[in-house]
Design a binder for these strands. Structure first.
Length: 801
RNA sequence: GCGGGUAUGGCGGAAUUGGCAGACGCACCAGACUUAGAAUCUGGCGCCGAGAGGCUUGCAGGUUCAACUCCUGUUACCCGCACCA
């Protein structure tokens, strides 16, 4: 046989020459859309983790095609963003050139693996032909009022010199470089994602995501129900509105707290006697990063507003107001009512500042965390005696609404999406600022707004985009009135291009539309989307939001873009540690392909363990996969010219067809391969196998090891190439075992095994069981209390003593 | 703190969903072939025990003829989220 390298190249060429994996709309065939998250083509090249998910989906796609589906399985590149830009700055080349080089490397690496992507649909988010439509879609948001410019305190990474979304600065740390994020005021384009909070929760019902993914999204969106309550200020005719989930504890309110940024501080600064102290505190708080405010400083700080106080609306008592950084301006109303008896944070604060603590729920452990659950209400006037949280809350809301001092209210943690980056390497935002007309969208015919081809793309210290330094780019005319005007110089985050790439794959070369209606209707939803768990609250949420917006605008036919979402586990280095450059334990897939071949790498990674869990790399395991494939090659020497299954193998083959088919559908590649290993061991023990035996065996292995199986199929002249054949089927009737060995237990312990026939009655089986010598040993002289016969499975005899 | 998950031999992991725990692979041991090695083949391989046998799925209980699987409690680790009112 020819060498592994040559045969792999041979079949890769065959598939390419025959456009085997190219999909076209075909209304006579049922479609299936497999999608694997497109990679960021970094300079480091392909990782064995990529190989795992690509091979898994490739196997599924190959099988699905053989099962008669019209399979869409595309691949592209998510190439905007900071890493490419950093690389370009460091090496003094234009990011577009660096990106092209990296894509070339990645693509060659993927192609060596024989992944059945439809390369005719390939694109990069950085292609002007693609980002033209990203810009076009941004303009749809803009025109709908879904994009607005706001002066925002944004998460600012001082190292990357860039504004970050909440999602990108989770934990107060820059997602990219790990620096602590600080707050900086900046004008930003923002998408009204929070408007979609409820729809994003509801839409999950229309998906088949894993529970953990759904939960992660639901938690991130952070819905809470409660009430807004208006507290009158004593010194001025004004009310301070707060949000609470526990209006039933209103009688226990002994103070209020506003966020340092609360507008009332400036508005009523004249009444505040210790304004200097207050301003000082606010400045201190502002300097703190979100991380310091939330993680490090659990110790409560604050300043009492001297000269400004509020009235508790339910009992008329005067209560003090404090500012403290434990209240956030971006959630609720930026002000809270404090119930120190039943909330740990309020309790800490009250203890520190010597404020009254009034118990309103009996039995609540005052010093412990969070709001007390059920207990009898006390010190609460009309709520006294209520002993159920829900009823108390309803009663209070009813009271508040009646008096017009409060109302039921739902809040979400989900914030609007900060959509601008002060960077060069992103999609330019297609807006122009005109002194007379304000912000005006670029005419559609003038899209895309192309990134200029210059050498200056380093970020500036003042936080302006590098594009601002390029007069030819900045200066333009107003699309509306024609007067001189200036372009927006910020660019989009790299989550933009990935928010709709799955749509573009359906019709990637369309110059007139972002995708044709026909393609949208035919390819529909992504049936199976594989990606990392780390994207659950970012890419996956952004993409759903984006698609829901397009749906609401009538631009796409499905509100939810993805049906099933699966995620692969990470591959760790030997010893169970993360692969990293610094540890020097990164495995380059090329080296494995060179040494063992692509099929071996593929089989190994599919056999390594539970697909959804992390797995540890083992070179010895790779060698084991290679041994398995070598054994399969040797099996060919036993083939005799017969187109029926061997009698001895028929049942095993039918069972294996069933097992492999079902296991692959549920991502249990490891057990599918195990079943094939068992079958190969059985065949290996036989003197000869038939062509039919061998072909079906190779066919079942083909999705995972496509090259070697095609080659052997051809060499032994077994039939058409698998990629042009129909997936094997099994017959239920061939699965039944006539004879079976089952265990006999006495008092739950196995004492013997017996052979039973499928037609044996329970009585016959029991008789056989009782006849065993080793069973008699335990039953003789003992009273048999009970016998259990489970057909085809087990016999259990319960004896006394 | 809240939410989600995991726990099975020396290792990666199986277990028809309540029916012989440890499939399959790796590693290891012994043997065959070989001048030797590689490759390949045969056999062994959870723990204790010479053996009969006993014990064993993080730990402690429970349900059941029967529990890795169901229930209660508990421990450890991993991952999200987190002064969210």
């Amino acid at each position: 046989m020819i060498s592994t390298k040559r045969l792999e190249e041979k079949w890769q060429k065959y598939w390419e020459d025959n456009k085997t994996f190219h999909a076209e709309i075909d209304k006579n065939k049922e479609k299936y859309y497999y999608l694997v998250e497109f990679p960021y083509p970094s300079g480091a090249g392909l990782h064995v983790g990529h190989v795992r998910s690509y091979t898994a989906l490739d196997s599924l796609a190959r099988k699905k095609r053989m099962q008669g589906y019209n399979v869409l399985f595309p691949m592209g590149w998510d190439a905007f963003g900071a890493p490419a830009e950093q690389y370009a700055i460091k090496n003094h080349i234009h990011p577009s050139i660096a990106v092209k080089e990296n894509i070339k490397t990645f693509k060659a690496q993927i192609q060596r693996l024989g992944i059945s992507f439809d390369w005719e649909r390939e694109f990069s988010t950085t292609d002007p032909e693609y980002y033209k439509w990203t810009q076009w879609q941004f303009l749809q948001f803009f025109k709908k009022g879904m994009a607005y410019k706001a002066k925002k305190n944004i998460n600012w990474c001082p190292k990357c010199k860039m504004g970050l979304s909440n999602e990108d600065s989770s934990g107060g740390v820059c997602e990219r470089c790990g620096s602590q994020v600080v707050q900086k005021e900046k004008e930003q384009w923002v998408l009204r994602m929070s408007d979609y909070a409820q729809q994003l929760i509801d839409g999950l019902d229309d998906t088949e995501f894993q529970e953990k993914t759904k939960v992660a999204q639901i938690n991130w969106i952070g819905k809470s129900t409660g009430a807004e309550v208006d507290f009158k200020l004593k010194q001025v005719d004004e009310k301070l509105t707060i949000y609470t989930t526990r209006p039933d504890t209103l009688f226990g309110v002994t103070f209020m707290v506003v966020a340092p940024e609360h507008p009332y501080i400036d508005l009523y600064g004249g009444l505040i006697k210790n304004m200097n102290e207050v301003i000082d505190y606010r400045e201190q708080a502002n300097k703190k990063s979100e991380f310091e405010r939330t993680q490090l400083v659990k110790d409560k700080t604050g300043v009492k507003l001297d000269g400004l106080s509020a009235i508790n609306p339910v009992n008329g008592k005067e209560i003090p107001i404090y500012i403290s950084d434990y209240v956030m301006m971006n959630y609720g109303t930026g002000a809270i009512m404090a119930v120190p008896a039943h909330d740990a944070r309020d309790y800490d604060f009250a203890k520190k500042f010597g404020i009254d603590i009034i118990e309103v729920i009996k039995g609540g452990d005052i010093s412990k965390a969070a709001y007390t659950e059920d207990g009898e209400m006390v010190n609460s006037d009309f709520l006294n005696g209520f002993d159920n949280k829900k009823d108390s809350i309803n009663k209070m809301i009813e009271y508040l609404e009646e008096k017009g001092i409060g109302r039921k209210k739902t809040n979400f943690k989900l914030q609007d999406w900060i959509f601008t980056r002060q960077r060069f390497w992103g999609e330019p935002i297609p807006l122009v600022y005109c002194e007379d007309c304000g912000w005006v969208p670029v005419d559609e015919k003038d899209l895309p707004v192309v990134l200029p081809n210059v050498a200056e793309y380093e970020p500036t210290d003042d936080g302006e985009s590098p594009l601002a330094r390029i007069p030819e780019f900045v200066n333009t005319t107003c699309p509306h009135c024609g007067k001189p005007a200036k372009r927006e110089t910020d660019t989009m985050p790299n989550w933009a291009g990935s928010s709709w790439y799955f749509l573009r794959y359906m019709d990637p070369h369309n110059e007139k539309e972002f995708v044709s209606r026909e393609a949208l209707e035919y390819w529909g939803k992504v049936d199976w989307y594989n990606g990392g768990m780390e994207h659950a609250t970012r890419h996956l949420l952004y993409a759903r939001f984006w698609n829901q917006f397009l749906y609401n605008e009538g631009l796409v036919p499905n509100k939810e873009p993805f049906k099933v979402r699966a995620s692969h586990g990470m591959i760790l280095g030997e010893g169970g540690v993360k692969m990293s450059k610094s540890l020097g334990n990164v495995i380059n897939p090329d080296e494995i392909v060179d040494a063992y071949g692509a099929d071996t790498l593929r089989v190994y990674e599919m056999f390594i363990g539970d697909y959804e869990k992390e797995a540890t790399w083992s070179e010895q395991g790779v060698a084991g996969a290679k041994r398995f494939l070598d054994k399969i090659v040797r099996l060919g020497e036993k083939v005799v010219d017969n187109n029926e299954y061997s009698k001895e193998l028929e049942k095993d083959i039918h069972k294996t067809v069933k097992k492999v088919t079902e296991d692959m559908d549920s991502l249990k590649f490891n057990t599918a391969i195990s079943a094939l290993m068992i079958l190969s061991n059985t065949m290996d023990k036989m003197d000869s196998i038939t062509k039919a035996d061998y072909r079906t065996f190779l066919h079942l292995l083909n999705p995972v090891a496509p090259h070697i199986t095609e080659e052997l199929n051809e060499e032994y002249n077994l039939g058409k190439p698998f990629c042009e054949s129909t997936w094997p089927t099994y017959e239920e009737s061939k699965l039944v075992d006539e004879e079976k060995t089952i265990a006999v237990q006495v008092n739950g312990k196995v004492r013997a095994t017996i052979n039973v026939n499928i037609n044996d009655s329970d009585e016959v089986i029991l008789e056989k069981a009782l006849a065993c010598d080793n069973v008699k040993k335990y039953t003789d002289g003992n009273e048999i209390l009970k016998t259990i016969v489970i057909k085809g499975k087990i016999v259990n005899i319960v004896v006394k003593g």
